[in-house]
């Protein structure tokens, strides 16, 4: 079952499009990561999905319901955690959750129960009587996540849930999200930090300038974009001969020297396995002593930079 579908979703602010012709399909029960540089349109997308702003054009379906027609029903199925969110001053942690439980019109007994359960879930039970504004960043983030869970929604829209968290808090957040996914919830989260999503998400979508540039599992995306593989070489001597051989090879498109002593270089190589073997044979046959000849792992940051046009500042 598909939990979230968008079709040609477009939103522009004063003529500048923030989200442009975005079509997403998110399977129910999966963790989907929306990733892109700042200003790519992630927050706008999530706000549209949460029903806070209206698309300029295009369509959103959540749990197969068109959100334009069923937004009242959908409010009960969506939990939204905004990117920047405030907390109310002069409010205790349990009151904060109690307030949102009241907003969802939970019955008093149920309200109490939900508040306690959620405080346990996000590990804030001992902070129950603390003031919200005294909590640390990570705690606030978890409290905010808890608020989005008050009505037990089956879809969670989390805007940058791990931003500003220290590594430990980030790990905790990750564990929490996994736990929620295992409860059967569909989670759509956004981030501009790749490594955060790589370990966590089942599927990622890379978004840039309001457009989805790639979508799928992380391995799939890596494979799709790296037709040119990168070879790493370490040579002990005869590096000039080696460079000549490399430059004359038709499959080598660029050579970048990583270190001089011992000579280490990264080569963009478009040929297949056999071509690589030929190249190695050629090198060794010319008396070059090869210490390392292997394929460099295409790392995610490279994928990201490649897809988003190498412009991370957005």
């Amino acid at each position: 079952m598909i939990a979230i579908t968008t079709r040609n979703l477009t939103r522009s602010f004063n003529g500048v499009s923030a989200v442009n012709d975005l079509s997403l399909k998110i399977q129910a029960g999966t963790l989907y990561g929306l990733i892109g540089p700042n200003g790519a349109g992630k927050t706008t997308t999530l706000r549209m999905l949460a029903g806070l702003i209206e698309p300029t054009s295009g369509e959103i379906r959540i749990n197969e319901l068109r959100n334009r027609d069923y937004w009242r029903e959908l409010q009960w199925q969506i939990g939204y955690m905004p990117d920047f969110y405030g907390v109310y001053e002069d409010m205790l942690v349990w009151e904060y959750l109690d307030f949102f439980a009241r907003c969802y019109r939970l019955a008093p007994e149920r309200r109490k129960q939900v508040t306690e359960e959620l405080l346990d879930l996000v590990d804030l039970a001992e902070k129950r009587e603390a003031y919200v504004h005294t909590l640390s960043r990570g705690m606030r983030q978890r409290l905010c996540l808890a608020h989005a869970l008050v009505h037990d929604p089956n879809i969670l829209l989390l805007d940058e849930p791990a931003s500003g968290l220290d590594p430990r808090a980030r790990v905790e957040m990750r564990e929490l999200l996994r736990e929620l996914r295992d409860m059967g919830k569909t989670i759509l989260l956004s981030s501009h930090i790749l490594s955060e999503l790589a370990e966590l998400c089942d599927t990622v979508g890379i978004i840039d300038h309001g457009q989805l540039v790639a979508s799928g599992s992380i391995e799939e995306i890596q494979k799709r974009i790296s037709q040119t593989r990168r070879l790493v070489l370490r040579l002990l001597d005869n590096k000039f001969i080696a460079q000549e051989i490399l430059q004359s090879n038709q499959h080598v498109s660029s050579i970048s020297v990583l270190a001089e002593e011992p000579f280490t270089a990264e080569v963009r190589f478009s040929g297949g396995e056999a071509d690589a073997a030929n190249l190695l044979e050629n090198l060794v046959g010319s008396g070059v002593r090869v210490a390392l000849f292997g394929e460099a792992n295409a790392n995610l940051e490279d994928v990201f930079l490649h897809l988003t046009g190498g412009d991370e500042s957005g």
Binding site: R47, A50, G51, L52, R72, Q75, W76, I78, G79, Y80, P82, F84, Y85, G86, V87, Y88, F100, C103, Y104, R105, C144, H147, H151
Partner: peptide
């Protein structure tokens, strides 16, 4: 609106 809690209110059925 300034404390950005308004969005959170609007996503509730309130």
């Amino acid at each position: 609106k300034e404390k950005l809690t308004y969005d959170m209110l609007l996503t509730t059925p309130l």
